[in-house]
Design a protein around this nucleic acid. Structure first.
Lengths: 316, 316
DNA sequence: ACCATTTACTTGACTTAGTCAACTATATCG
DNA sequence: CGATATAGTTGACTAAGTCAAGTAAATGGT
């Protein structure tokens, strides 16, 4: 993955390290088992890997293959020479660089690869077939997660995108806010219930002309959200701003607030107001930066804690 | 994993197969990269794997090593002979079987293994260190999932367990119910809002003496839930029964309803009532099996659909 | 335009890692 | 007790991969 935000890490937890090492040992063996089944073919495992790359990507050079598969250049050279001798590949010198040549499978090469590919496919199919469908999904989802997290070369992804509310979001936001504030500030389950209540009311009385929601999504996961509701014809209220800890530092919070302000202005509201608690420092900094002014403070006891509530207004 | 429930599988989906193959190629490379760093040592990769096993498990025999690491018996024999020559291991013939011997690292063997182990540890630590902590957690969680799913020898796991509500649950249940009914029956976002509202009210007015919740959890994931609320001193109401599609067929639905009935009886309620919709067939079958009787039906328009609501009662 | 350096690939010489089959000693089954 | 299986060993072998030196083309700096 591309690292957009790299907080100062302490040395990673030993338990996590051991878990990763255990997985590596486990998966080394797992791959070994799958590969065993392919050994009967005329090709070695590495040859098969090379053929696979050639079958699936066009215009590769010898260096590309060596780099992507982690092979020695001399070894690649010999493999390719052998393939060429057997007429499995053809090479054409690049016009842009006469040292390199673009390698392609010949029809004969494709024919040779087909059974190999089928065997590998069938082997994986057999593996999956041992699991019920729901677990197949969990398996593949986990694999995709690992790949996305470890793949340095993943295409520079869009840091995040904003979209309106969808089904499933209000539950997710409820859950995440409930869990985060419980973890960070020790708030009890009534906070999660309050979020649920607010969001339920938002959906039920939603007036698209005067109200709006923004969900920040990254890699298909919700990482932040904010809501604007109509309090009166003159006053809009910003509610439930949150950004996932894992997505902080990307400016998502500020962006969400800016969207709210722009929307409130466009709709002709005179004031954008919001209510928060003084302990929520990072949210406060966002509001201040956006020009909100502290209007009022009052003590209250909520969510199992003594808190100081704050009202902030922005004149539009 | 041990397969408790193995529905008739069709041939697994090609997309899933390709995803698994992509992961295998990716992880082959990943392991290759990690292993490269260890090549400077005096030991080959396979030797290091053997040493690792010996360092972490006592009383292994040569056959055990060959089987667990997927190595040829002759090769193992030679590796062990070499280790013995360098005084890294000691072998003692088993009393139970004079052909086998139990292999143990000598102190010198442990010394030789230590730097190897440290290098591998550091390498993984460096890998993890590139990720923020939250992503480290996601990574390891995904690895554990894969391992649990693919490891045939994993201890037979508890199919599911029941526990009371925790923070984060009501959001999760809201989300999942909203998504499932949208997917299966085309209900709109007001259903999710209704669930949120009901659950918010449940938490806010929760009376532990007369009310209760049960969350079914499997592998740390919520896979079902049900709630009992007090409608009157005589009548308890069962609400929001649901079971994840992936966990159906384990009897979780029936179990949840049985818990509600037992609770309502124990508390001295006279009637357990519930409201549902006629299209929810699998829920209906559970209620019928538990002895509920259909009391009333009425048409209504909700969640963007024309529906037939049903009231079911069980006299306790 | 020219020279030093780098890159892409090739080749020869080599080592390491792993395989296979034959063999011994012991254990197990009926 | 004899047939068969298992644990481990060994010799003979091959496949797989490494390393260093070399050629030809490209690149960067002056």
């Amino acid at each position: 993955m591309t690292i957009h935000h790299h907080p100062k890490n302490e040395a990673p937890n030993k338990q996590l390290i051991d878990a990763v090492r255990a997985f590596n040992r486990f998966y080394t063996r797992q791959i070994g088992l799958l590969d065993e089944g392919l050994l009967k073919s005329a090709f070695s495992l590495t040859e098969a890997r090379v053929l696979y790359e050639l079958a699936h990507r066009d215009g590769l050079t010898a260096t590309d293959l060596g780099r992507d598969l982690g092979l020695d250049a001399g070894y690649v050279s010999r493999l390719l020479k052998k393939f060429e001798r057997h007429d499995l590949i053809s090479r054409s010198t690049l016009v842009s660089d006469a040292r390199q040549s673009s390698i392609a499978l010949t029809p004969a090469g494709r024919n040779a690869f087909a059974p190999l590919n089928k065997d590998s496919h069938d082997q994986v199919a057999a593996l999956l077939d041992r699991l019920p469908v729901s677990e197949q999904d969990r398996l593949v989802k986990s694999m995709r997660t690992i790949q996305a997290l470890l793949d340095e070369s993943a295409e520079p992804k869009i840091p995040y995108l904003l979209r309106p509310l969808q089904i499933g979001d209000i539950g997710w936001i409820t859950r995440r806010q409930g869990m985060l504030y419980a973890q960070d500030y020790g708030w009890d389950e009534t906070y999660e219930a309050l979020v649920a209540e607010i969001l339920a009311a938002f959906v039920k009385s939603f007036d698209p002309k005067w109200e709006r929601s923004w969900i920040a999504e990254r890699d298909g996961e919700v990482v932040g959200s904010v809501f604007v509701v109509r309090k009166s014809p003159e006053v809009a209220k910003l509610r439930l701003l949150y950004v996932e800890p894992s997505a902080r530092g990307l400016g998502i919070g500020g962006r969400l607030v800016d969207e709210c302000i722009a929307f409130a202005r466009a709709k002709g509201y005179k004031t954008l107001t919001l209510w928060t608690n003084d302990i929520l420092g990072s949210a406060r900094r966002i509001y201040q930066a956006a020009g909100f002014k502290l209007i009022d403070e009052e003590r209250h006891h909520s969510f199992g804690k003594d808190l100081v509530g704050q009202t902030w207004d922005l004149e539009l």
